[in-house]
Design a protein around this nucleic acid. Structure first.
Lengths: 231, 231
DNA sequence: TACATTTGATATGTACTACATAAATACAAT
DNA sequence: ATTGTATTTATGTAGTACATATCAAATGTA
């Protein structure tokens, strides 16, 4: 049997460390006991003894949960369960340089999907004031290009404002995190292309147009990106 | 000055532990040296000595990076940088029970946004075979309710298939993670409501209809959820 | 009694040591 | 050339020790 086949059939044995096990164990423990935010956890020593591992291992596992914001620790008081920032952990990993190309492409498409799906919530929440601010941003953007960096900043300012207009903080933060990826993928293209519908056009649609018109306008605006998608 | 103002102005001093600092330090180190996946890292002892902390602290920081999939460790060989699973960390935190209500609502809307934005990529990639499979799923679903659990499973199967049809693995996994949240928020409503457009209707649109018709159909299908959104 | 101060106990944070274990390397043997 | 053996090295785990912050109780004071 060829070596490649062997690798395919067997693969490396996943060797889990005690810290891995304890992390999982703790997570299940928290779930099982249905701890609520603010509830106190047993001390590190108690956990270590109960699990039959060294305090060291417990601390490595706790360190992970702490990073995710699932627990907070105070000296003497002990540890309490808290409500994690769900995007915090995400943020740590979103570096274009360490993400594989396939996933980068996926994220690129994910962002396009969000952009095309915004219209409904946007039209539910947009205010006159918001549109005025968006217009100000769009007008400050000279269509005559001043280089790649300037163009990308424009994009960020404009689209970022649109997300903020939805009033959805998680969504806004999320798209903000996706921006570097998006920018990275765009930077790979040789000749930057611009859609037929400009930012100003979109603002005008937001003023008088319907949801459907806005969606159509956004599609046109993003057309160059959609055109690059592979079937 | 009232106490609340004080808290607002000053806030608690964020007491960062050495592990926090080392984690950040390591992350910057990896970035600065522009390590690529597969590259070997210094040993724990070397890192500890260089940073002037105990090996213990270094291990707590490394444990976090290991959880995120940023590094892999093998005995004797040492540590190597690897490409993290960007959704892996996300998954760990997505428990409806520990997320605050405001964020739950945000995620609910995020999922609706994705659903409404899918049409373009879906129409780019859908195949005849996919539609047939989707139809099979839709037809196996008896519209006469068999209880909440059955209805939710139907939703998951059908919409899950739609996401898979986009060929975007990250997107598919992402929505799969959002499902528990979505289900949880829905379960809070007293009287379950069903949109005018059924799954079978959506399949039929996919067969013959346009992108815009599909989007309109999806909007109708999700109408009960959209109606619950607050302005 | 009410309030301020001191003291003690406790849980986390950090350091250090020790050893088991796995794995790469070199070398010997069949 | 493949297999077996010894050595070395880095991680994985255990355990001890102590600093530090903080809660709680005890003590002192008006």
């Amino acid at each position: 049997m060829a070596k490649n086949d062997l690798i395919k059939d067997l693969g490396p044995i996943a060797q889990r460390t005690m810290a891995d096990v304890v992390e999982k164990e703790l997570r299940e423990y928290l779930k099982k006991k249905s701890f609520k935010p603010g509830d106190a956890l047993p001390s590190e020593n108690e956990l270590a003894e109960a699990l039959g591992v060294s305090r060291n291992v417990v601390r490595e596992a706790l360190s992970r949960l702490r990073m995710l914001g699932m627990i907070e620790t105070k000296k003497r008081r002990g540890m309490i369960l808290s409500t994690p920032d769900i995007l915090g952990s995400f943020e740590r990993v979103l570096d274009p340089l360490i993400i594989d190309d396939s996933t980068l492409q996926d994220i690129f498409e994910l962002r396009l999907t969000l952009e095309m799906g915004l219209a409904d919530i946007l039209y539910l929440r947009k205010t006159k004031k918001d549109i005025e601010e968006l217009e100000a941003i769009a007008k400050s953007q000279d269509p005559r290009g001043k280089g790649q960096a300037f163009r990308i900043n424009n994009e960020i300012a404009f689209h970022g404002k649109i997300y903020r207009m939805t009033g959805n903080e998680t969504l806004t933060r999320f798209q903000n995190m996706l921006l570097p990826i998006f920018g990275y993928v765009i930077s790979l293209e040789k000749v930057p292309q611009i859609g037929k519908v400009s930012h100003i056009d979109l603002v005008n649609i937001l003023k008088d147009g319907t949801k459907e018109e806005f969606r159509q306008g956004m599609l046109e605006h993003l057309k160059p990106h959609f055109n690059r998608l592979k079937k």
